[in-house]
Design a protein around this nucleic acid. Sequence first.
DNA 1: GGCAGTGGTTTCCTTAAAGTAACTAAGTTA
DNA 2: TAACTTAGTTACTTTAAGGAAACCACTGCC
Lengths: 127, 127
Amino acid sequence: MMETATRCQAYNVFSQACPTRMVLDRLADKWSLLIMDRLRDEPVRFNQLRRDVEGISQKVLSQTLKKLERDGLVTRQVFATVPVTVEYALTALGHTLSNTIESLAHWAEHNIDSVLAAQREYDAVNA
Amino acid sequence: MMETATRCQAYNVFSQACPTRMVLDRLADKWSLLIMDRLRDEPVRFNQLRRDVEGISQKVLSQTLKKLERDGLVTRQVFATVPVTVEYALTALGHTLSNTIESLAHWAEHNIDSVLAAQREYDAVNA
DNA sequence: GGCAGTGGTTTCCTTAAAGTAACTAAGTTA
DNA sequence: TAACTTAGTTACTTTAAGGAAACCACTGCC
């Protein structure tokens, strides 16, 4: 039986049944955060997204967008132009999450040098 | 040739060579964020961590802790007790990151219901 | 001597995520 | 008519992550 979000919070985030952990699991893939970050400032079309998020394949982009749409984080809007235009954008819910994602990105930008230094030091000691 | 963090920031986070993306990649596994969240308030011993973070195996816990230690986010301290005690704790760097992790966890706690509702609606439409 | 507890490592296997490439469809241009 | 664009899907393969179980060393306890 699934616990409610409230119960989960009252117990612990580390429980397997906790929905919070489900969300964390969902975002912890290779591309979701990157895509949401790209959508932060403006709606972006499929192929533009594919060009901007370097290295992602058509298949995985499509899959990931579908998941994000299913989770209510992203909208998909089709325009009957020729060729057809499909625009992806963050929902209101998606925008509330993107603030956190941005702070994660900021952390990475500001601390990447410390992380790389730590890695070098660790590797030197554990040669 | 590896770009510097500054160059990366000036260009874009979405580039494959960007170190920021390396950090995002590293954190986007199944357990890292969860472990760091558990270490947030106090140092925790190996087996305690294993019991608290439900579902993680001994091997994966050990691997993940090593990665976090290598990245300079977690320290490992051995006490010569019997049986031996090994305590894991966040570094100063790790603490700066844990604030962001906490906000991610908060987001999940507050919005899980919206996400689940969106999923139900999506599944109903795409039956 | 044998079991318990600590904190791991090693091996083997399964599974899920991701990559590659080819294919579709609709319409526009040359 | 053939090629190009958009936005995908499908089939197949590869890779990486994770899980299961057994093993190690150390020592105290009974």
